[in-house]
Simulated scan of single mutants.
Amino acid sequence: MPNRSEIEVITPGLLRQWPLPVPEGGKGARGTVLVVGGSRFTPGAVLLAGLAALRAGAGVLQLAVAESTAAALSIEVPEALVVGLAETGDGAVAGRDQERLGDLVGRADAIAVGPGLNDIDETTALLRQVLDAAKPDAALLLDAYALGALSHEPGLLADRKQPAVLTPNATEAGHLLGRDPGDDPDADAAELAERYGCVVSLRSHIAAPDGRRWREESGDAGLGTSGSGDVLAGILVGLLGRGADPAQATCWGAWVHAVSGQRLAPRYGRLGFLARELLDEVPHTLAQLG
């Protein structure tokens, strides 16, 4: 692993020296993953993240989504337990009085919060519930509106035992930093990692709170498509569910996401593939490294 003063490029050689856990036994040994998100109008974000988690090797998948979308998602993802959550009149997942959520959170080994959520205040309250109910060793991944909630209340993760990964885009990074991102995303990622005590993945620049830093250089413009970030979040939480530590899951996930896009380019061109088409490439990409 790199020294704290280095930025190491993520390569197959690096990852082979940092092998993922290979749990033995049934599906429970491969981890229970929970994805919390999906407003009435954006259930696809949870679908993409959940399927990506399974493709990355998670054993059990739970989805907690706006109640109006739960039936459709349970048909679309028959491999998952899908639970409907109360929603506001605008179709956002409500942040309070989610009695069924606590049981799901308490069973999860890795939890992604954010894909498809669309209300900062409701998401903030929802995130508090998740943090309070999560097991001390459950891994967290905050994405999309969950990052907005964290920027509004920077102390949400303070004194929490759960390890966490943050996956901001440039706009979300600006909110978390309290300023416009600079010209050095490596430095911005490192600042965020130190500030929030989490592993941070910012536009293929990854930083851990202990000072380690990595860069993924295989990605191409085709990954900048709607839903691609949800697939990345799902890969990461799936690897966390398998038992990878946050830095390992984030480095592996960034490489798998990027190379899965490379595998699609000969068929669809650099800019023509869809986020959903990344899903089938994920296990093939992981298999490249044995």
Rank of each mutant, 00 (worst) to 15 (best):
156 L>M: 15
245 D>M: 10
237 V>H: 05
65 V>L: 00
78 P>F: 14
153 E>S: 14
152 H>F: 09
80 A>L: 05
261 G>W: 09
210 D>P: 06
97 D>W: 07
134 A>W: 01
283 P>M: 04
201 S>F: 09
154 P>E: 09
187 A>M: 01
134 A>P: 06
98 Q>I: 00
19 P>H: 01
201 S>W: 13
176 L>W: 04
14 L>I: 10
264 L>N: 05
67 E>V: 03
51 L>Q: 15
237 V>R: 07
234 G>Q: 03
233 A>V: 01
146 A>P: 02
45 A>N: 01
84 G>T: 06
155 G>R: 14
214 W>N: 10
91 G>R: 04
190 A>S: 12
99 E>C: 01
129 Q>V: 02
219 G>P: 06
108 A>W: 10
73 L>I: 13
237 V>N: 07
253 G>R: 00
125 A>H: 13
289 L>K: 03
51 L>K: 15
212 R>C: 10
107 R>M: 14
65 V>H: 06
225 T>N: 14
251 C>K: 04
24 E>L: 14
247 A>Q: 13
172 E>K: 00
96 R>H: 14
128 R>S: 10
135 K>P: 01
264 L>Y: 06
245 D>P: 07
68 S>Q: 07
1 M>L: 11
185 P>E: 12
63 L>V: 06
250 T>P: 04
118 N>Q: 13
108 A>I: 12
196 Y>W: 08
283 P>N: 02
